[in-house]
Design a protein around this nucleic acid. Sequence first.
DNA 1: AATGAATGAGCCTTCATTCAT
DNA 2: AATGAATGAAGGCTCATTCAT
Lengths: 198, 198, 198, 198
Amino acid sequence: MSPRTEEQFASMREKSKELLMDTALQLFSKKGFHSTSISQITNEAGVAKGILYHYFKSKEELLVAIIQKGTNELQSLFLEAFKAENPREQLEQMIRVTVKAMKEQKLYWQLFSSLITQMHDNKIIEDILKPLTQQSIILMEGLFSKLGKKNPKMEAIAIAALFDGIGLHYLFVMDDYPIDEITEFIIEKILGNQSDTK
Amino acid sequence: MSPRTEEQFASMREKSKELLMDTALQLFSKKGFHSTSISQITNEAGVAKGILYHYFKSKEELLVAIIQKGTNELQSLFLEAFKAENPREQLEQMIRVTVKAMKEQKLYWQLFSSLITQMHDNKIIEDILKPLTQQSIILMEGLFSKLGKKNPKMEAIAIAALFDGIGLHYLFVMDDYPIDEITEFIIEKILGNQSDTK
Amino acid sequence: MSPRTEEQFASMREKSKELLMDTALQLFSKKGFHSTSISQITNEAGVAKGILYHYFKSKEELLVAIIQKGTNELQSLFLEAFKAENPREQLEQMIRVTVKAMKEQKLYWQLFSSLITQMHDNKIIEDILKPLTQQSIILMEGLFSKLGKKNPKMEAIAIAALFDGIGLHYLFVMDDYPIDEITEFIIEKILGNQSDTK
Amino acid sequence: MSPRTEEQFASMREKSKELLMDTALQLFSKKGFHSTSISQITNEAGVAKGILYHYFKSKEELLVAIIQKGTNELQSLFLEAFKAENPREQLEQMIRVTVKAMKEQKLYWQLFSSLITQMHDNKIIEDILKPLTQQSIILMEGLFSKLGKKNPKMEAIAIAALFDGIGLHYLFVMDDYPIDEITEFIIEKILGNQSDTK
DNA sequence: AATGAATGAGCCTTCATTCAT
DNA sequence: AATGAATGAAGGCTCATTCAT
């Protein structure tokens, strides 16, 4: 019963905050941002309603915090891709990591997809979410360029679209989406046969 | 003095209904279904709030009516694709028509995308919107099969994902998306070179 | 196709008016005044909504018209009671006619009961409906007086309450109310045995 | 500074809930359920509109809560009647308690009367309110039987009707209803003279 | 930090009434 | 007289946010 140390407080604080963010992520991605109420989040998390406002200024700031956490987690996943030794493998890794992210971070991916299609013109989406795609296109363009592709930009744009489309179908449209099969199919098609480079 | 005829009433009804559906489509696709209020729709349309409920039982039925109109319009566009003479051209037409639809029916496409990512478990989405993708995959699978592709199903699933991804990027992510360039690039890639057929 | 005569118009007019009043009576007594909408009435009657306002200034005036028609019909029923030759038979007739009215004019009786318990302080109820009870008490008091009862006023008040209570139970509370049996029981009790007069 | 205790919250809740129920009872019984709006209730109670929905899921649930409170209060009143020693006195007490209830719980009695005449087919009315009358008839039938009446069931039905009628006239029809006088008159009539027992 | 009662703006919807034809 | 589209006030209800303790 000794007074708690600063760190303990900080850790409790961090724990409640995380709990709320996790709960909100689940609800937001399952039911949508607008259809999830603060009460639902705090009920589900087992805390009082008011406490949410100790950690987040508003429902929207909670969303922003979740988005930021999500992008961080996704980006750290993507760092793995660049441990690969050559452009071909880096590209393969980017694809594999993307698919891994869809499978392991379903909730974030679902949330982000719904936000992008619903909250155009929203500053946060504009500043955080949309650049993610742009960045990966630029990265891939560089890799395709190194691989000697004729039109690396189009290659990159196409692959980006392809995997965002796969994510859409996997997460929202088809129940038994053959995500692994399609991934291998595409990797083989793009990277398996080097003969179409010039 | 004499009462209006049946047809006069019918045309008034049709006009008002269209006006409301068009206005709602714009707002739904721009701001999202949940963030659009009935008042906004009727204000924008320049009519009294109550009139909406003469034409639609509820906000959700209004949405359904819009979805149905949208799918009809899209499907009649797709019929064009099958005037083509051979599988190769049919496939090309399917792609071109898809892109044409994205460009000419932006609002419907945006709305449908946002609904799919937001309203999982909703019956209408489940019954009307999701099957659209399934159908086009089956159609394309048949065509790829006729073209002698080794794995027509994967080809179809990939193309479907690719173009839904393109739609996503074109409509929501990038402001100057090179939609025509990417379309030609892909058509050339898939159909220009027949050498990979068996 | 000769132009309709004035009378024909008047009769059509009267017919539509009656139709609306009958339909409204049914709905008001079944679902209550507040829970019945103008649309329901005109739909049920098979006429256009606007037409109701040709005949009645407002929903409330429609109600008043129905009330007046109802009280007229009930009062003409009660005139029968006074064809009886002596006070004893007149009283018996009053009771029998009351019960007959409950059975044959269920709808009016139901409507009136609900209005009395719901629209206190409403002028129409105050002026038309409440006096009905008062009048019959005065009438019965006179008859009991002629019969030589010690306290004719209390006798009258009691009988009035008794039969309004019977109406309540018959129309609203019990499904197989033994209305005829209880009526005979009471008539026998009050009038069968003259020995308790003094 | 420290958060309120469980009990403090409970007492706040109880107080607010009672306030709302009391206010609603007054308005419902004066103006009727349908003619009373939530705003009126909360205005009258001096609280914000939204708070009502912390305590009651809907306007109808508020009504149910009031009905249940009312029936409880009425039934506890009726328990008094059975402290009497013999059937004759128990009957007298039942009558006196009924009249006492009408006078002291005017609002509940008015509300119940209006609900019975207005909300046929409503489950709550059907399950809670209608049985009240049935029960008291059965009770009285037993007592009349013990008193040796020839037709105890009819006696009971008649007394039940009589006092519901008296309630109707007292509460809704006549301004200076001689409720005490009529009560004594009836008690004397039914119970004062034992000579008609067998 | 924690609680949950309280607020009030705003939502979807209904409906009596009006009106042009 | 007849039609039904249009109006707009008001109703029930939800919910992000605040606040006293």
